[in-house]
Design a protein around this nucleic acid. Sequence first.
DNA 1: AAAATGTTTGCAATCGATTGCAGAGAAGTG
DNA 2: CACTTCTCTGCAATCGATTGCAAACATTTT
Lengths: 342, 342
Amino acid sequence: MESQTPPGRARLSDVARRAGVSASTVSRVLSNPGVVAHATREAVMQAVAETGYRMNHAARNLRKQRTGCVVALVPNLGNPFFAKILDGMGRELAGAGYDLLVADTLEDSGRHTRLDRFLDPSRADGIILMDGLAPFGDLAGRADLPPVVTACEWIEGADLPRVMLDNRQGGRLAVAHLRALGHCHIGLIGGPPGNVLHQARHQGAHEGAHEGAGGVRLTEFPGDFTMQSGQRAAQAWLALPRPDRPTGIFAFSDEMACAFMSGLHRAGLAVPRDASIVGFDDIELVSHLSPALTTIRQPKREIGRKAARIILDRIAGREIAPVTLLAPRLMERETTAPPPPS
Amino acid sequence: MESQTPPGRARLSDVARRAGVSASTVSRVLSNPGVVAHATREAVMQAVAETGYRMNHAARNLRKQRTGCVVALVPNLGNPFFAKILDGMGRELAGAGYDLLVADTLEDSGRHTRLDRFLDPSRADGIILMDGLAPFGDLAGRADLPPVVTACEWIEGADLPRVMLDNRQGGRLAVAHLRALGHCHIGLIGGPPGNVLHQARHQGAHEGAHEGAGGVRLTEFPGDFTMQSGQRAAQAWLALPRPDRPTGIFAFSDEMACAFMSGLHRAGLAVPRDASIVGFDDIELVSHLSPALTTIRQPKREIGRKAARIILDRIAGREIAPVTLLAPRLMERETTAPPPPS
DNA sequence: AAAATGTTTGCAATCGATTGCAGAGAAGTG
DNA sequence: CACTTCTCTGCAATCGATTGCAAACATTTT
C-alpha cells in the first residue's frame, strides 16, 4: 500500500486518489475551501498531510499566468543603502501574498546583460527597478512586459511610474543648513555626472546657494558615491591653500562624507571645528560614529513600502500616480557648526 | 496578416507557423541549434525576431523540472556583510547559467514563516542558506527538497554541507594579537548566545587567552552584533573602575567595534591610546575610518564563490566536501597598540 | 408531486515548451 | 538498382495544477 505514492513527490492526483476524490476537488480544497463540503474537505486535508503534498509552482504559474513574485533589481547589492528599502518592500509585499526576490543588475562589472531575464511575466508579476542606468529603452516598447515601477533612481524619458525622495529639496536643505550656520564657501562632493540622483541634488544645492540674499561660493569635487572618492576629495581639499578651502562640505552620499571626515581626521584636523560636513541618505552607521554625521535622511522603509504598494496597484490594474515624491529631512547632528574664524 | 499573431505574447507555435515549421523545430533551434538544417534554422531565427518571441519560463520549468535559479536565504538583507558574499555568489552562478535570487528570511521580525516557500524544487534548483536559526529540522527529513548548502552560518546537527570561515581560528587570532601587544586583560563583546558564530569565536577567544605561558584575564560584554549593543558595551566599559577595564577589546562584529570606538571617543578617550580594539568581518567601511579598524577579515567574495560552486556540484550530483573552512586573516590597522602604562 | 433552486463534484480542456519515437528523404554502399 | 545509413523534421505525449461546464444529488417552493 506504500507504493501508492511512488518515491518521488506527491502530485495533486496522488492526493486525490488517496482521498478518493478527483484532482479538481483537491485543488479546490487548497485554493478555495469554501466551496467544498465539510466531510470531503476533511478527507482531502488528511490525504494532503499523509502524502506531504506540496504544490508545484511551475505548474500553477503556467496555468494561472502569474508567479506570485515581485523582483527588485538593484544596481549593487553591496550598497547598504538598499537594505532598509528592501526590507520595507518585502514586508508590504508579504502582506499582499507576494514574495520579494532581489537580483543584482551588476551595473558596474559585466554590463546589464542579465536585465531582460527578469523583465518577463513568466518570471515576475511586477518589477521594481532601482537602477537608473538600466538599458530600459530596448524593452520599453514591448506590450508584454510585467508592470514596472522605478524606485530611488529613475530613467529620464521613460514612461515609468517613479517613487523617490525629493532629491532637489534634499540638496537645497543641506546647503541652506550650512548657510544658516554662516558658511559662505561650500564644497560639493557629487556623484557620477550621468546619474539622475547627482543631477537632482546638484540642482538643489545650486538653488540653495543662490537663493535669498548674498550668494555663496561653490566648489565642486568629483565623486561617485564611494568611499574612495570621498577620500580623494579630502586629499583635494587638503591640497587647497587655506583661504580657498570651503568651510562647509556637502557630500552627496554618507559614504563619501565618512571618508572625507576620516581624511581630515587623519590629517590632524577636527570636525566640525575645522570644517562642517553634511552627508546624504542617513544610513544606519553614521549616527553611531563620533562625531555623528549631520545628514539628509531618506525615509527608506517608506520608499520601499510606497514602491511596493504601487507595484501592487499596477498588478491589480488600478490607477496610480506617475510620480511619488517623499520629503527629505535634515538630521542635525555633530558634524556641522559655524565656520572657524578666519 | 498582422492578426496572425494576436496582440498577446508570441508562443512557440506562433513562431512555428510563421516560419512554416513545427513547434518542435523551433524549440530545437532555440535550445540545440546543431541538429537543425541550416536553412531551417535561418528561417526560424527570422521568425523569432519578427514575432519578438520570448520563452515562457513557467512552461519550460514545468516541462524540464528545473528552474535555472538558485535562491540565497539571508537572515537580514540590511546587513552589509552579506553584500560582497552575494556578489561573489552571483558571478559564479551566472557563469554556470544560473540566476541568483535573494530572499530575506525575516529572522528578526515575523518568525521564519516564509522559509519553506523557497525550499522547493519548483522554485529553485538549489538553496544557499545563510541563516543559522532557520527552522530546518521540520524539512530536513523530506527527500524532495532541492539541494541545500549553508554558508557563513550553519545549523548544528543538520546534515548539510557547510562553507564558512574558521571562526574559532579567527577568535584565536584576535586575542593572540592583543596578547602579543602586551594586553593582559581583554574584553569580549559577543553575539547572541545561541548563535553558532558567537560560539565558535568565543571558543577561539578562550583558547587564545589560555594557551601559552601566562594566561590572560577575560571580561565578557553581552552583544548581538548590532551597533546598539556595541554602544551599550562602551557604556559598560566606561562605568567600570579604571583598574577593572580591559585594555584590549575584541568585538565579534565590526559594527559593534565601531560603535564601541565611537562611545570611547565621545567620552573624550582616544583609540588606541586608551584602549585597543579588534573587530570581526572587515566590512568595507572600517578601513576608511580614522583610526582604521584592526579586524579579522573574512574572504567574503571567496565564501560566496565557494558556496556557489558547491551548490552547483550538488545540483549536478557530484560529490562534495561536507565542510569547507576558509582561513581568516588579521588586518592590522590603527586601532591596536600596546596598552597604556598603568 | 412536479418544478425550481442550490450544493458538490468530476470531466476534460488548457497553460506553453520539450523530447522520444518514427517517418521522409538524402546520401552512401555493394 | 536495391539496400543500408544518416540527417532532418513532425507527431503526440508529457510536465502538474486550474477552472468552465455540466451532471448528480439534495433541498425548497409551488
